[in-house]
Design a protein around this nucleic acid. Structure first.
Lengths: 214, 214
DNA sequence: GCCCGGGTCCCCTGTACGTGGTACGTCGGA
DNA sequence: TCCGACGTACCACGTACAGGGGACCCGGGC
């Protein structure tokens, strides 16, 4: 059985292009729709393997369409298509359940490759620009990591990591195989460098700067 | 001034390949290193625009190398290279500050494209398999942030807010117009509800749950 | 009415913590 | 070559903290 696909895209030219590319790559197009409502109805009727969803649809937003598809036909993998890479859009689509996110204009091979990727299931096609948004989100979109006082040494970071997770000086000393007095030395230096004076403050600053994972 | 790059990679064949590809694409290779320590030293000496870092280095882990590079030479963009796509590895590298993540084996064009992408700064090259991990993280971590144990009362949240910002019990008592002993009662209950036993742990959990802003 | 649970208040004790010192070997940069 | 930064190590003091009590008031349900 060939892989079955649908496209939900209001621009007929793009829609035809998608159909062309996919059929050329051995997929079976079992329909296209120009609106979200039609697309959802189409998907429920055909239950395709993959749905290409334009995010710039009239009326219903692409995110809502994807969310609906995930609910109604969970076996259908959704790939978001869009000409813009507004962060909120990207995140919204991915959170809604898109398995991939590709930006227009795309190469013919790129599209076919993306479909194959999501079907194989072990990879997610994400355009580099969308990936940047993802990364920013993952890191808590803190762009000002740099130039915050002197850098901590590797050893100091190790101590800090253990400290902020609630371990006592004795615990840290044990874990690192050093004396408790030595731990105190590190703590003093860490506090100086970070310009704090308690474990709680250090913990806050450490997560804010991404030095430790919460 | 041409774009300057270094490679930190223990496999000499791969290292040479990288150098070949990048020089062919007009980049200037200003050194390669086979170990993390050497790589960091090299980076501090040369301060390149981009560093290709293998995650499978002997001794020092690639994540640590990337983290060190981000700290020591923040202007150098790091791209992680790896043959495996273990989720923890991917996330670790990206959290450590990698601007891109590409899987070996890679096409020549892929590598050059990746370097250009990170330098342009508006996009992040992420291999499809790595992207899948990212997506899972984004969707998997989001749901279980809230509803952890009993909710804190308004008063308890006030105390917590002040506490995690490094204020002492006395400070909190003063700020809220209550006795220090009372503050201790709140702290005890907060610890019970949050299932922690130190200020540092409470601070971590509080930011993780969005109860306080770092 | 009664008690019960949540929020508020306070004290006490032992421990962990923050901070001030001092010291020595090593490694890399000036 | 020497100096500085780092990692290691120790002591001592005063205070903040963690965890154990006991107690009050209020609102709701048996």
């Amino acid at each position: 059985m060939p892989t079955r696909a649908i496209a939900i895209e209001d621009d007929e030219a793009v829609s035809r292009l998608i159909a062309q590319v996919l059929t050329a790559h051995g997929f079976e197009m079992c329909g296209t729709a120009a609106t979200g409502e039609d697309g959802i109805a189409l998907a429920k009727r055909e239950v395709p393997d993959v749905a290409l969803v334009d995010l710039g649809l009239p009326k219903m937003s692409g995110e809502d369409v994807i969310a609906a598809l995930r609910q109604e036909v969970p076996k259908t993998m959704c790939i978001a298509l869009t000409a813009v890479d507004i962060p909120a859009r990207v995140l919204g689509a991915l959170r809604a359940g898109a398995a991939g996110y590709i930006l227009k204009p795309f190469h013919a091979g790129e599209l076919a490759r993306a479909v194959e990727d999501v079907l194989r299931g072990d990879s997610a096609p994400i355009s580099p620009r969308a990936a940047k948004v993802l990364l920013a989100e993952l890191r808590g979109d803190a762009p000002d990591q740099r130039n915050h006082g002197p850098a901590l040494s590797k050893r100091e970071r190790e101590v800090l990591e253990l400290l902020v997770h609630g371990h006592t000086y004795a615990d840290v000393a044990n874990a690192l195989g050093i004396a408790e007095g030595t731990v105190q030395t590190y703590v003093k230096r860490i506090y100086e460098k970070m310009d704090v004076s308690t474990k709680a403050e250090a913990a806050l600053l450490a997560v804010a700067r991404g030095l430790v994972k919460p």
